[in-house]
Design a protein around this nucleic acid. Structure first.
Length: 536
RNA sequence: GCGGGUGUAGCUCAAUGGUAGAGCGACAGCCUUCCAAGCUGUACACGAGGGUUCGAUUCCCUUCACCCGCUCCA
């Protein structure tokens, strides 16, 4: 499937529009149209129902170590700035970058290392961005090459310093960039604010800076104690939240896949450290199955377990649920959801202060003065087992899904072109969105076969009956075939048609979107018929 | 952020330094007894800003957006 066909259909039928389109659009922002908003709401509602409100707190789900509870939360988008300092986002999202005008490459300012060297009265800083062990040899080779010397002449070079960070260099004109052949090709370091900054208070200045959340998860961690104190939940349990998050992506791309404003569906699942790996496996498999059950079956969906060197030091497992989006190259997958074992990193960070994720066991990150880089809340976020009186900091499993990415994947998977006969029996190309009935924006359309003989009146009564239960659509205009095809493009799974036989025996036809099969049911049974077919 | 490409009606596309045309779609009406192209009619567009010019949708510059590649991000 070519992506532009789907993009065109989304625009044409009102699934997705570019944000602020009449003003030329805004990079990285998208709007959901009348069909799109129904689809995305259905995706979020299916997630909430399947994970939270419909969860059976008493039973042990297949694959789970034991029964568990689920509760929800909806926290503010703007939180105390200290939240992001302790979570690590503040440091991580404020990188300084330098670009190379010659090689067109971009580097993190603090990660570029190099040495001052001089030869024949010329002095320069040879920079490198290769891995630690190879930095010295890379610097030497490139210095020799620059001065047009052979390897055996390495002794002619005068090294003024050992490897130092590019941060220490003020005059970029004397720098040989990591992939450059000429001097002075690096731009001055520029700050990348990956968190959206805003001001709290009408008279606020820089001291009142706050951030739009880059993830919903931190709101759950900072409310962990509130939930414990107000709900009687006991470990193991999960807190779920859906909501908007914001990241100032450098390169928004690929339709809605990488947006600057996006919606997440996240669970933080709190459990005992001893059973955390079993819970990680449960959530990984459970979340994959959710996508399969809603229609993402097949090769385009996969679970990818992160390799050991990809994992954070504190994590003993992370998996991505990925989908082979049509805009990616063959063999490439895009992340729909990450299921991460986060151990006690987050709760401890909000207690003690920002932890250094590269330490094991985790230690507080300290500044140049030896004091904590960012102070935590100082509140006790440990958990006391009321049966054993044991006190511990829970470990966390985090299934973090993108609502817009899931919605986009469902759209991509649903887009189908097949052949269907026209009124003369000639096969015509048909565009049909084969969305799972649970997430389809319109559940059924009701038509009178023709606009006369009392058929519209009967069809309207059926429409009103159904409308109390489902989002259904009534249409009496034009040829019946055209009305069917319109609903195919909207992804409506069923069409109910009143014909002349209805007037005799009170039955109507129901047409299946995917098979084009039709069968008759009594018009009073339409609600029951649909309910049975739309239930999870 | 860099390089390349693209921007004309809701969608897909055309033409032109002298005031834009088609197909599909939409709407109104007619006709239609089950899978889009039967008839009549209607509405709707040169992404934005500036420049050159008597005159710019067309040429130039800037900008915005989208696509491809790199980079980046996770």
């Amino acid at each position: 499937m070519e992506m532009d066909k789907l993009v065109s259909l989304c625009k044409r039928r009102g699934f997705l529009f570019q944000s602020s389109e009449i003003y030329g659009g805004l990079n990285g922002f998208w709007d959901y149209g009348p069909l799109g908003v129904e689809l995305k709401r259905n995706v979020k509602e299916a997630w909430w129902r399947d994970m939270v409100s419909g969860h059976d707190d008493l039973g042990v789900p297949a694959g789970a170590p034991e029964a568990y509870e689920m509760v929800g939360l909806d926290c503010s988008i703007i939180m105390h700035p200290q939240v992001w300092k302790c979570s690590g986002h503040y440091d991580l999202f404020h990188d300084f970058m330098v670009d190379c005008r010659e090689s067109k490459k971009r580097y993190r300012h603090d990660q570029v290392k190099g040495r001052w060297v001089s030869h024949d009265g010329k002095r320069l800083f040879v920079a490198t961005a290769v891995e630690d062990e190879q930095q010295r040899s890379d610097v030497q080779q490139r210095a020799l090459k620059y001065f047009n010397l052979r390897g055996k002449d390495a002794g002619d070079l005068t090294w003024e310093t050992d490897l130092v960070s590019l941060i220490t260099v003020t005059d970029l004109a004397q720098v040989l960039g990591p992939d450059a052949k000429q001097l002075g090709t690096l731009t001055p370091p520029r700050e990348f604010n990956l968190m959206f900054k805003t001001i709290v208070g009408a008279l606020g200045g820089e001291d009142d800076a706050a951030f739009l959340r880059p993830e919903t998860a931190q709101g759950i961690f900072v409310n962990f104690k509130n939930v414990l104190d107000s709900t009687r939940v006991r470990i193991p349990f999960g807190i779920a939240q859906t909501g908007k998050s914001f990241r100032n992506e450098i390169t928004p791309r690929n339709f809605t896949f990488r947006s600057r404003e996006f919606e997440q569906m996240e669970i933080e699942f709190f459990c005992h450290p001893d059973s955390s790996f079993q819970w990680y496996q449960y959530w990984r498999d459970r979340r994959l199955k959710w996508y399969v059950d809603l229609g993402l079956a097949g090769d385009r969906l996969r679970l990818r377990e992160h390799s050991a060197d990809e994992l954070s030091h504190y994590s003993c497992g992370t998996s991505d649920i990925e989908y082979a989006f049509p805009f990616l190259n063959s063999g490439e997958y895009g992340e729909l959801e990450g299921v991460a074992h986060r151990a006690d990193f987050d709760l401890r960070s909000h207690m003690e202060g920002k932890l250094d994720p590269s330490t094991r066991p985790l230690k507080l990150e300290t500044g140049p003065d030896g004091k904590p880089r960012w102070r935590g809340s100082g509140k006790d976020l440990s958990y006391r087992d009321e049966l054993t009186n044991a006190r511990f900091i829970p470990h966390v499993i985090e299934p973090s899904a993108g609502a817009d990415r899931a919605t986009l994947a469902f759209l991509c998977e649903a887009y189908t072109e097949d052949q269907a006969p026209d009124e003369n029996g000639v096969m015509q190309t048909r565009i049909v969105m084969k969305l799972h009935p649970r997430i389809a924006p319109i559940k059924a359309a009701v038509f009178p076969l023709v606009k006369k003989d009392g058929m519209p009146e009967v069809a309207q009564r059926i429409y009103r009956d159904l409308k109390r239960n489902f989002n259904v659509f009534y249409d009496e205009k034009g040829a019946i075939g055209r009305r069917y095809r319109r609903q195919d493009e909207a992804g409506t799974p069923y069409c109910i048609t009143v014909d002349s036989q209805t007037l005799q025996d009170q039955t109507v036809t129901i047409r299946d979107r995917d098979t084009l099969r039709q069968w008759r049911v009594n018009l009073h049974d339409c609600v029951a018929e649909l309910r049975q077919r739309l239930s999870p």
